[in-house]
Design a binder for these strands. Structure first.
Lengths: 307, 307
DNA sequence: CCATATTACGGCATGCGTAACGATC
DNA sequence: GATCGTTACGCATGCCGTAATATGG
């Protein structure tokens, strides 16, 4: 059983069961890939791919297991390479962050800025997606670190660490009737048209739960994926916006004013997720610490767990 | 980076940093091992082993990481082979159980008997050790399934499932003063010489805690690793024995009588442990189910977690 | 008929084993 | 001086790539 063979079956699966495409992606010849897959199947004594004559048409049940384990092996090999780089190519490498729009736009910038200054030779990439995409990218090894508020903790392979907490605020034009109130209530919010996040993308289910428990039905006229879009429509007078408090900046969002809502909703926690079995480069730990200064000890402890 | 190279460094480490011994264990030549290790170190750009001239004298810090990951890769490769065997050599293979004396002697026999009847072509091996040895054998992949009452759940890599609960009983000669009592108390126990398990080997800390909370100091005259030894000394009149209730059989232990102590101590739970990332052969799941009929669904669910 | 997988075959790289050398205890 | 690791070298295995063949949509 050779590493190449595992790489080959993995790539063939990734390329939609197309050996030719896999061969091209791997910069090698088609017959080579075909041959090695046959040898692997022969050695294991089973078919990984279902064939209709000479066409690959599916993956067998054992094949599915093999592919899963092949991915694991390749991830481990990547880990080994990383250990090498960590000690021989210090502070040089790649960091891929997967996160949501809100985090990328409002929370990461300061950490990123410090990071690229501290580690000028590390190539930083930010993948953006919804929370479940973030989780799956980290789980599959496509991303090194995931940052999101929801659903990142579902996968057994992930280690999640609470990163920071945040709450919400209302944004509205300064001339809005609510703007003069000392303290906002859920009923106040319910009596005006509301614009907020798409439920799938943030702690939205939590927000809707709070309204439900209070017996208030918010009049949601529009939902959006990110705070910038929400603020735009608030500016157009379509309603008041309910957004993460870190998404409001007094100067930048000048025509709008904000009213804190921390007393109305429980805090939401944003989590940082990494694969449990990943070897974390020094700069990855540094990034995590930049983002959340008090987690590093825990993280190190967890990283060394398998010793 | 080749699989052989990982195997080689792993074996050299296992053999106490002796390349010659590793080469012999791997049925290959010394120079080959030496060469491949050098190539691996060169490729990774670091030293795995500390050398004094030409002598290996230690493992470097990155080397420790590499060895850990090499073990992981080899485990994954073993998993792949297992998938092959599972589908091509059905109900044939090896099952290694790691467990403590008490389990091996009193709880496993019926499951083992059924198992070897159901799977005559599976070679069954039982490794015996104390709970922490059981845990480490499963964690390292030396054993497939571990069964113990304590400390099996410490390692992150292990998945533990509650298997069954048990409590304790007193054994003593029929002429013993306590034998005629209707209900035993902790004070009763404290007023007679006591023989029980070595604390390190069972729920002993729990037992001592119960005595402590009750303000009773047991007069422990002897501790032993297993119930058979304890019963032997009870037969000699050295004291009364406090053992697991499943370790007493009315017929076999005829001269001795037993008094149930379930009302004095909380139940202890025996756990079954497997590596989270292990591929479990069908017969392994069957064994687990034989031992504890209602866990199989959970186990399967957990096994498939990575899909 | 085109796209795609398998078979055939020759060249080349790589790993292995034997032998010789060097160093450490 | 004995054990152990490294270097040198020749052989064999096996992988890769090109070309040719077969098969399915």
């Amino acid at each position: 059983m050779k590493l190449h063979q595992l790489k080959y079956v993995h790539e063939v699966s990734q390329q939609g069961l197309n050996i030719s495409a896999a061969a091209e992606a791997l910069h090698t010849s088609q017959p080579g890939v075909s041959k090695q897959i046959q040898l692997l199947e022969e050695e294991l004594g089973l078919q990984i791919f279902q064939r209709n004559g000479k066409r690959l048409v599916g993956i067998t049940e054992p094949g599915r297991q093999i592919l899963k384990l092949a991915a694991q092996v390749m991830f481990d090999m990547q880990n080994i390479k990383r250990v090498g780089d960590e000690f021989s190519r210090v502070e040089t490498g790649t960091l891929i962050i997967a996160t949501t729009h809100t985090q990328a736009r409002y929370k990461l910038p300061s950490a990123v800025q410090q990071f690229i200054q501290m580690f000028p030779n590390v190539k930083l990439t930010i993948h953006q997606g919804n929370p479940s995409q973030v989780a799956s990218q980290v789980a599959s090894g496509e991303a090194d670190i995931g940052i999101a508020t929801e659903s990142i903790s579902l996968d057994e392979r992930l280690l999640t660490l609470p990163c920071y907490q945040w709450n919400r605020c209302l944004v509205m034009p300064s001339y809005h009737p609510l703007a003069s109130k000392k303290s906002i209530s859920l009923v106040d919010i319910g009596s005006h048209p509301l614009i907020t996040y798409d439920f799938a993308f943030t702690g939205g289910t939590l927000v809707s739960q709070v309204f439900h428990d209070a017996g208030v039905t918010p009049n949601i006229v529009l939902t959006a994926i990110d705070a910038d879009v929400i603020k735009t429509y608030v500016n157009l007078g379509l309603g008041i916006g309910l957004i993460a408090n870190m998404a409001y900046d007094e100067k930048r969002d000048a025509p709008l004013i904000s009213l804190d809502c921390s007393h109305l909703f429980p805090d939401s926690t944003t989590y940082l997720g990494v694969r449990r079995d990943a070897f974390l480069r020094g700069y990855m730990l540094s990034f995590m610490q930049l983002l959340s200064p008090d987690i590093n000890l825990k993280a190190i402890e967890q990283t060394l767990k398998g010793t």
